[in-house]
């Protein structure tokens, strides 16, 4: 059992969820309510990581983050380290790759709120932020929660993009999914089996947690 890899995966998932929480709420809400030119394009772009092969996506990120690229240079000048083959690089890649999982369910959650209910909040004297906090989030919560759990679970299991952008540096970019692959390559079937089982257990737990939470929220709302 590679505890370092598991811990790294958990950290990566936690950071991804933490960064994507406000993105999920704000972008989901924005796309749910606003009609604007090019909305379809924005929605398609958000969904793109869902259909692109992770290796393809990873390749482009590698090019975009690498040395002599604007993003890579900027990162280097700001933090003095390179973005590729680092934990920070993994977090950035993971955030981008999880956009569809973070935004889509939240958007559906906000879309389910009747327009009149939002208008009633404004007529009660609530500004946009108060309305979000007191009315919209309590109603859209199952969607946002689903988004976060999906993001978490998906980050734990991501393989291709992590390998492309991060390599397999123990303690830095070697996540549990990559560790499993390494064990299989090294004919350590027992190690791979244990780690796979742990990943299955964690995934099952998180999915069960979302269902339980959203059922509870659903009862609260209706």
């Amino acid at each position: 059992m590679d505890w370092t890899a598991l811990s790294l995966s958990m950290q990566l998932a936690a950071w991804t969820v933490a960064i994507l929480l406000p993105v999920s709420v704000l972008m989901g809400r924005f796309l749910a309510y606003r009609q604007f030119r090019g909305k379809g394009l924005v929605e398609a772009l958000v969904m793109l990581p869902l259909v692109l092969p992770p290796t393809v996506f990873g390749f482009y990120l590698l090019v975009a983050f690498g040395r002599n690229s604007p993003v890579g240079d900027l990162w280097q000048s700001l933090f003095g380290s390179q973005l590729v083959f680092s934990f920070e690089g993994l977090v950035v890649a993971s955030v981008i790759f999880n956009l569809p999982f973070a935004i889509q369910p939240a958007q559906r959650g906000f879309e389910a709120i009747p327009a009149e209910v939002r208008e009633a909040a404004a007529c009660c004297g609530m500004n946009s932020l108060t309305s979000l906090w007191k009315v919209e989030l309590p109603l859209a919560w199952p969607g946002v929660m689903t988004a976060l759990v999906l993001t978490f679970a998906h980050t734990l299991g991501e393989f291709g993009i992590v390998l492309m952008v991060g390599g397999s540096i123990p303690g830095e970019t070697k996540t549990i999914a990559i560790a499993i692959y390494d064990r299989v390559q090294g004919f350590d079937d027992r190690g791979a089996a244990i780690m796979s089982a742990v990943l299955v257990a964690i995934s099952l737990f998180t999915i069960a947690l979302t269902y339980w939470l959203s059922a509870r929220m659903g009862r609260r709302v209706s």
Binding site: E119, C123, G125, N127, S131, V135, P138, R220
Partner: peptide, 20 residues
């Protein structure tokens, strides 16, 4: 003025109560 700054009370056709 945005709606929340107008002192207006409104009863909607389907009431639009906050369900939670």
């Amino acid at each position: 003025l945005p709606t929340h700054r107008r002192r207006v009370g409104i009863v909607f056709q389907n009431y639009a109560l906050f369900p939670h």
